[in-house]
């Protein structure tokens, strides 16, 4: 059957993601050497950028799925559920991007938070998608929730370049731009370090795929269950009406 094959594929992705993340930790913490300038801190390089990449990927998929839902020709409940699943996992990864970025910032810049352009934009993005999840939690009919959250996702997406441009000007017009250099620009990546970095990107992306898939599947089953419950309730009601007459 197709569905059992799909489930096997999903399980394989999950297993690969788990192995990959374990390998990332092993490569990052044990195998790779400390860097010349950053010392052991460079090990954070194997988690932070891949978190950020997955976060942006997740919101990109949310936007795409929302647009497909809004367009009448391609409107399927599945797009709405996919957008929601991707946004939820994306919020987790964005949160981790901020936390790991902050942990990187403390020893390198001496503060837990700098109003660095990229960091600030990521924080606003995090807030935008918290709003998305909050909007989805408001009880309303399925189609209305789908349309409204899709519209919100598009509005948020349009906002991203504007936010980027404004915080970029904000933090670079009057301040020396050295703060806006992320960890990647200051470290020479070579050999085993490049391998660790690549493993980290691949395995966290796989983790994202697996999580979105599982979350999507759960939402789909939840939806089917709710429809079933509704049908049961209507049937019961009809029975009681018939018994009464």
């Amino acid at each position: 059957m197709r569905s059992t094959q799909l489930r096997r594929l999903r399980r394989a992705i999950g297993a690969a993601a788990l192995v990959g993340v374990a390998a990332t930790a092993w490569l990052g913490l044990v195998v790779t050497p400390p860097a010349e300038f950053f010392g052991n801190l460079v090990r954070l390089l194997y988690v932070h950028p891949s978190m950020a990449w997955v976060a942006f990927l997740a919101f990109g998929v949310t936007t795409l799925a929302s647009a497909l839902y809004l367009w009448r020709r391609t409107r399927r409940p599945a797009w709405d559920l996919l957008a929601a699943a991707s946004a939820e996992v994306g919020v987790v990864f964005t949160g981790l991007t901020l936390v790991t970025g902050s942990i990187w910032g403390r020893p390198t810049w001496g503060v837990w938070w700098t109003w660095d352009a990229l960091l600030t934009a990521t924080a606003v993005l995090f807030l935008l998608y918290l709003g998305y999840l909050a909007l989805r939690r408001v009880p309303m009919s399925e189609e209305r929730r789908g349309v409204r959250s899709a519209v919100w996702a598009l509005i948020a997406f349009v906002d991203v370049p504007i936010i980027n441009q404004s915080v970029y000007w904000w933090r670079t017009l009057h301040q020396r731009p050295s703060l806006s250099i992320g960890p990647t620009n200051a470290v020479e990546v070579h050999g085993i370090m490049a391998v660790a970095l690549a493993v980290s990107f691949v395995s966290f992306t796989l983790t994202w795929v697996w999580m979105v898939w599982v979350r999507f599947d759960l939402a789909r089953r939840q939806r089917a269950l709710e429809q079933l419950e509704l049908a049961h309730a209507i049937a019961e009601r009809l029975e009681s009406v018939e018994a009464g007459s």
Binding site: A25, G28, L41, R43, L44, V47, L96, V99, I103
Partner: peptide, 19 residues
């Protein structure tokens, strides 16, 4: 090992594991 590094890896583990 650097405490910040441990904290960073731990945060990722807690975040993803929690989810």
């Amino acid at each position: 090992m650097n405490g910040y590094v441990v904290a960073g890896y731990l945060a990722v583990a807690v975040g993803l594991g929690g989810y």
